[in-house]
């Protein structure tokens, strides 16, 4: 059964349907949004399709190896133009169409005014094990 990673972005995606930035939402709008996300995950737990999920902080920086015995090189915080992942959910479903359907449901989480956010989500197939029989 294929796994897919659904990626939610703070920025870098295309413009959502309901384009009011999160910092202008009311407390109750945020509550409704978070409740929707929790219920969505619970629904996938119940259907046996949930693998894992996490929300990511906006903070972060680039890091890389800089040679033997040297400390890691860092570069940050991220530039304002960087595509920034806000969170991810790993699902295990029967088909690509099912993954698209679920991503669409997740994108319908309410935003300002309780209207569906309609944000763009990235759907990325996870590599599968190599099949035994190929010829």
């Amino acid at each position: 059964m294929p796994k897919y990673l659904l990626l939610k972005h703070y920025r870098g995606g295309k413009t959502p349907l309901n384009d009011v930035p999160g910092d202008q939402w009311t407390a109750s709008e945020w509550e409704a949004h978070v409740a929707y996300m929790d219920e969505f995950a619970d629904r996938l737990r119940d259907s046996g399709e949930f693998v894992a999920s996490a929300a990511l902080a906006m903070d972060g920086e680039w890091v890389r190896y800089d040679g033997e015995g040297r400390p890691p090189v860092t570069d940050g915080p991220f530039a304002e133009t960087k595509d920034l992942v806000a969170g991810w959910m790993l699902i295990d479903v029967d088909s690509y169409d099912r993954a698209l359907g679920l991503a669409s449901d997740l994108s319908a989480a309410p935003g300002a005014g309780g209207r569906p956010l309609g944000e763009w989500l990235e759907v990325r197939p996870v590599m599968e094990p190599a099949p035994t029989m190929t010829e």
Partner: peptide
């Protein structure tokens, strides 16, 4: 064997 949480597999089987 299928790299999913036990609770997820339990639900899948139960359903």
């Amino acid at each position: 064997a299928y790299l999913v949480p036990e609770a997820t597999m339990a639900q899948r089987i139960s359903r």
